[in-house]
Design a protein around this nucleic acid. Structure first.
Length: 275
DNA sequence: CCCATTTGACCTCT
DNA sequence: AGAGGTCAAATGGG
C-alpha cells in the first residue's frame, strides 16, 4: 500500500507536469526542443507509474536524497525526491512539533524542475494543481535563494495545507518543495480520498472516487465543463473525454492511465481492498 | 473592494 | 543568540 502511495505521487507529479505544460504552452511556441523535453518528461513520469503498476518496485532505500521516481532510462533532472519523515532528521521533527503542533507527522519533500518558461518570466515553481497563497519569505542560512512559504488559499475553509518552496543552490533549475499538512479543502461534491499513512502530507491528493479527467486541464478552449473549482484547483471530472479536439498531452496522460488493465479510473488502479 | 504579495517584526526552539 | 517559521500591516492589481 505504501507502493500505492508512491505510485499515486508519481502519477500526480506527472499530472502536475502536464498541467504546468498547459499553463506555459504559449511560452513554448517556437521552441520545439523545450516542448519535446517537457513532453518527454511527462511521458517518462507516466511510464514509470505504468511500470510500477505492472510490477511493483523493490523496497526503497532509506529516504533522504533518494531519487524516488527516477526511471533507469531517464536522463533528465526532473525527478522528484522521496518522502522524508522520521528520516528527515531532527530539524523536520522539530518543525513538526513547533508552534501549532497540528499533528506530529512529517512532511513530504519533492524536487521539481523550474518551468522552462513562464509568462512574464516569473520565477515561480510549477503549479501542482492547488492554489497557494504566499505568506512569507525567508533567507535560509547557507542557501543562495530564499525560501518561500505558501499556504492553501482555502485556509478559510479550514485547509491547513502548506508548502515551502526553495530553489536549490546546486541546481537553480530545480525547486525543492516541502509539503506540510494535508489538504482538507474540497469543494467538489465528491468526497476527497486521503490516502492513509504519512503521505497524507504528500502532494495534492485528488478525489479518487471518480475518474480523473486529465483532459480537464486542457479546458482552456475546450468545452469540457468546469473542471477547475473556484480556487483554481483541479477537480476530478466525471468525464475523461476531451472531445474531438486534439490534445496531445491529455491523450498521453489518458493513454498512460488507460494502459492499466483496461480500467481507466483511479479506482481501477487502486481497487478498494474490501470490496 | 477584495485578494494576493511583500516584508519587517515577532515567536519558538535549539 | 541565531535560525526557521509565522504574522500582519502596507501595498498594488484586477
Amino acid at each position: 500500500m505504501e507502493e500505492n502511495q508512491e505510485t499515486m505521487s508519481l502519477i500526480l507529479h506527472g499530472c502536475a507536469l502536464a498541467q504546468d505544460l498547459e499553463s506555459n504552452i504559449a511560452g513554448y511556441a517556437g521552441q520545439p526542443e523545450l516542448l519535446l523535453a517537457s513532453c518527454d518528461r511527462i511521458s517518462d513520469v507516466f511510464r514509470q507509474a505504468s511500470n510500477r503498476l505492472r510490477s511493483p518496485p523493490p523496497p526503497l532505500p532509506p529516504i533522504g536524497d533518494v531519487t524516488l521516481f527516477e526511471a533507469p532510462d531517464y536522463a533528465g533532472p526532473t525527478t522528484v525526491g522521496g518522502t522524508d519523515f522520521e528520516a528527515a532528521g531532527p530539524s523536520v521533527q522539530r518543525a513538526a512539533t513547533r508552534r501549532k503542533k497540528k499533528d506530529s507527522c512529517g512532511r513530504y519533500t519533492e524536487r521539481v524542475p523550474a518551468p522552462a518558461l513562464r509568462a512574464g518570466g516569473a520565477d515561480i515553481p510549477p503549479d501542482d494543481g492547488y492554489t497557494w497563497r504566499k505568506y512569507g519569505q525567508k533567507d535560509i542560512l547557507g542557501s543562495r535563494f530564499p525560501r518561500n512559504y505558501y499556504r492553501c488559499t482555502h485556509k478559510n475553509y479550514g485547509c491547513g495545507a502548506k508548502k515551502y518552496v526553495q530553489r536549490l543552490d546546486e541546481d537553480p533549475s530545480m525547486y525543492e518543495v516541502t509539503y506540510r499538512d494535508p489538504h482538507t479543502c474540497q469543494t467538489s461534491p465528491t468526497p476527497i480520498v486521503i490516502l492513509p499513512g504519512p503521505s497524507d502530507f504528500g502532494p495534492p491528493v485528488v478525489p479518487l472516487s471518480t475518474t480523473i479527467g486529465l483532459g480537464s486541464w486542457f479546458s482552456g478552449s475546450l468545452d469540457v465543463g468546469r473542471a477547475i473549482d473556484e480556487g483554481g484547483r483541479s477537480v476530478g471530472s466525471a468525464s475523461q473525454h476531451v472531445g474531438d479536439v486534439d490534445c496531445p498531452v491529455a491523450d498521453l496522460a489518458d493513454v498512460m492511465f488507460n494502459s492499466v488493465s483496461g480500467r481507466s479510473s483511479m479506482e481501477g488502479i487502486f481497487a478498494p481492498k474490501d470490496d
